[in-house]
């Protein structure tokens, strides 16, 4: 062979390549012809010895041979790889439709998820998170909040009393007093937590519930700022298309006081069955901090003003997730908890 290699020689090599059964043999064969000491490589080196007039043609011919052999090797390699794949598939095929061996991911209770959602909303607005005791004194739960002992407004809070002389707080408004006693305005805080009222459990009442209380005290804080805050809350919690509405109400520790309504997400305040035809759903109570509350913590009501709002999380959950019986929240049926996986967090 060597320099005088013919088309037939090349064809013989290619036929040989095609009979190879393993990648290793193929590699050996490739080295034999195309490696550093390979026949074709050696032949190409010898071109220099050929007379210059024939050199060009010879070079072109050998290059062509080299290319054909390389292609044959590559084709055979691909054929072998494909054969190997087929073999693996034949030996073992995965059923991709079969269920995975699933990892268990825990679900957060819906109350926690909504609580964290609300916390993010107020943290985002710049309100500080504050906590306080659930076993409270009557002073922080009532008297400091402008609710004297024999006032009929105490009827609004049926209270649990404890053997240690304390009571279970009926709202997280207690935390406002504790914070205001320690700090001077301006203040913007919110306080989430468990509260208790002596209600027998039914579809819309629980003796224990979660409230978030919000307080903002500064110079010239007005009903307008309360409305602005409520709008942000309603839009982030229920949807950007929601509106709010205030209706005058009464709480001893705020004046003026409001019931706050959010527009129905189904009919957009035109009235439908899910909102009882009114177009509006009651979500929380709010108001301007009563001057008597400021007096009880030593703030001058002529210098400072503020708003407060208190929202029950169960109510929010009922509205957001069409929950008809809030006792479900306390039953802890695994199916119920799993139902709310990944809703907020």
């Amino acid at each position: 062979m060597l320099i005088n290699m013919t088309d037939q020689d090349v064809q013989d090599i290619i036929d040989q390549i095609k009979t190879v059964r393993t990648v290793n043999e193929l590699q050996e064969l490739k080295s034999k012809y195309l490696g550093k000491q390979g026949a074709l490589t050696v032949a190409m080196k010898k071109i220099r010895e050929v007379s210059p007039d024939k050199r060009k043609d010879l070079g072109r011919k050998l290059n062509l041979y080299k290319q054909r052999i390389e292609e044959a090797v590559e084709d055979q390699r691909n054929a072998l790889i494909e054969e190997e794949r087929e073999r693996r598939e034949a030996a073992h095929r995965y059923d991709v439709t079969m269920p995975g061996a699933r990892r268990e991911v825990g679900a957060l209770h819906i109350i926690s998820q909504v609580q964290e959602e609300v916390q993010e909303i107020f943290l985002g607005m710049g309100f500080e998170l504050a906590v306080g005791p659930e076993m409270e004194t009557s002073y922080y739960n009532f008297e400091a909040l402008n609710t004297p002992e024999w006032h009929p407004s105490r009827d609004m809070h049926d209270t649990f009393y404890l053997s240690n002389g304390k009571l279970l707080r009926t709202h997280t408004s207690t935390v406002q007093i504790r914070v205001m006693e320690k700090r001077k305005p301006p203040l913007a805080i919110f306080s989430p937590g468990r509260c208790y009222r002596k209600d027998t459990p039914d579809a819309t009442h629980l003796p224990m519930f979660y409230q978030v209380e919000v307080l903002h005290v500064d110079k010239n804080v007005s009903v307008a700022h309360l409305k602005g805050t409520l709008e942000i809350l309603a839009k982030r919690l229920f949807g950007q298309d929601r509106e709010i509405r205030l209706r005058p109400s009464y709480f001893p520790f705020t004046e003026p006081s409001f019931e706050v309504f959010v527009s129905c997400g189904i009919c957009h305040s035109t009235g439908c069955r899910s909102c009882g035809g009114t177009g509006w759903l009651e979500i929380l109570g709010a108001g301007m901090v009563h001057p008597n509350v400021f007096r009880s913590v030593g703030y001058d009501p002529d210098e400072w003003s503020g708003f407060a709002l208190g929202m029950g999380l169960e109510r929010v959950i009922m509205l957001k997730y069409d929950l008809e019986d809030i006792r479900e929240l306390m039953r802890n049926d695994r199916r119920f908890i799993k139902e709310f996986r990944g809703v907020v967090l």
């Binding site: 710049g126 009903v223 307008a224 700022h225 602005g228 805050t229 003026p256 301007m288």
Partner: peptide
């Protein structure tokens, strides 16, 4: 005085008050 403000507010109408964003400082 605040009790009178509430009387005025509830008859004047809270819907007439334009809302303003809260003026809260960073935490």
């Amino acid at each position: 005085e605040i009790d009178l403000v509430e009387e005025i507010g509830r008859i004047y109408g809270y819907d007439r008050i334009t809302s303003k964003p809260p003026r809260v400082m960073p935490i």
